[in-house]
Write a protein that binds this DNA or RNA. Structure first.
Lengths: 196, 196
DNA sequence: TATGATATTGGACACTGTGTCCAGTATCAG
DNA sequence: CTGATACTGGACACAGTGTCCAATATCATA
């Protein structure tokens, strides 16, 4: 057996488990799911589960990591949008979330926000890079604070957009988000009040 | 027995359970705690727990509700700050969080954000009201989106501020937050790029 | 202080889910 | 075909939940 390749049976089992996880997460949210549920849905023996993943969280982490990696493969076109006004990350992510709406609705968690740390970290890195680009890196905690600010706002807006049956297109919600992020609520609403 | 009053024993038991919950949450985070842990820490029989609360979540909800209510009692001074620039909610909340830092660190959840829905809802109402005030209520989903945007940003900045051993005072972090919220990252960093 | 009402207690119970282990069986690659 | 590897179901010990009950401690008040 070639060292790098994977036994068909292994690939089949893991794929089944990961897809079962997605289906179930969509229905009841992540925390409510049990390992037994996943195995039943995947039609895989429970003892088999534990030969692949030590627990439920590891299955989720592995699943998400693979998913993110598959997104990064055609990495070129993300840079090509760099000089669009504002962030380059938000548009593609809104688009991607829209395309696989059910899966992301599941990822965000229904009422309860269960956004896994892998995704939050990935987005955070994007934001930090882009913010560092548009400023002169003045040191201080400003960059970190702004990053947190934007990431928190982004996930919350995304969550609302996925939960609500809104007519807003990915491009529209992205435009609103970027306007809020760059120009603040004063630019969106009336009577600007400068804060210094 | 007068209908409205509460038996000393009941008050004592509930108080013990609530304080035990806070102590334990500070240590390991909310989800890791078991009902048994709480009872051991509170020195209360486990069966007694269930005569007061149906489960762990209800204890948390009740505890938080009472805490919020006690904050709203001297409600006047919150309105008095209304005409400060920007939000009136953020400053007091930063101050309060700073005063009872440990407790809020616990509430936010260590790495894992476990912010209970009661608090999020309470803050959301504040933000929605204040945003509705500074704009002409132009209908559309704009108000809701902006509310989500601000609430998400606020919790994330608060989380960072509580987790990190930063020297920033409540007033300082509040000032930065409000500037980001009202004027956007462009106002904080260099080379403003208008987004329309 | 005596007393009836009510709260608390520990222990037992059934239940669900976890994670480990193993021997038997099915499937793989060469 | 065959040796290697993966899958399987079932058993196990364990931890935590939520319910119930009879015995005991504490309460409010007459």
């Amino acid at each position: 057996m070639p060292a790098g390749s994977i036994d068909r049976r292994v690939a089949r089992t893991r794929s089944r488990l990961q897809q079962a996880l997605f289906r179930l997460t969509t229905e009841n949210g992540y925390t409510a799911i049990t390992v037994e549920d996943i195995c039943r849905e995947a039609d895989v023996g429970r003892s088999t589960f534990y030969t692949h993943y030590p627990d439920k969280d590891c299955l989720r982490k592995a699943t998400i990591d693979e998913h993110i990696k598959s997104l990064q493969a055609p990495g070129a076109e993300r840079h090509s949008q760099r000089n669009a006004k504002g962030f380059s990350f938000s548009g593609p992510v809104f688009e991607h979330a829209h395309a696989t709406r059910e899966m992301h609705r599941a990822l965000m968690g229904g009422k309860k926000r269960e956004m896994p740390e892998e995704i939050r970290g990935w987005i955070s890195r994007q934001v930090r890079n882009e913010l560092a680009n548009i400023q002169g890196d003045e040191g201080g905690g400003r960059l970190e604070i702004a990053t947190r600010f934007i990431v928190g706002a982004f996930f919350e807006v995304m969550h609302w957009w996925l939960e609500t049956d809104t007519k807003l297109s990915p491009a529209e919600i992205d435009q609103i988000f970027r306007q809020l992020a760059f120009n603040g609520v004063n630019a969106v609403f009336a009577e600007p009040t400068r804060i210094e």
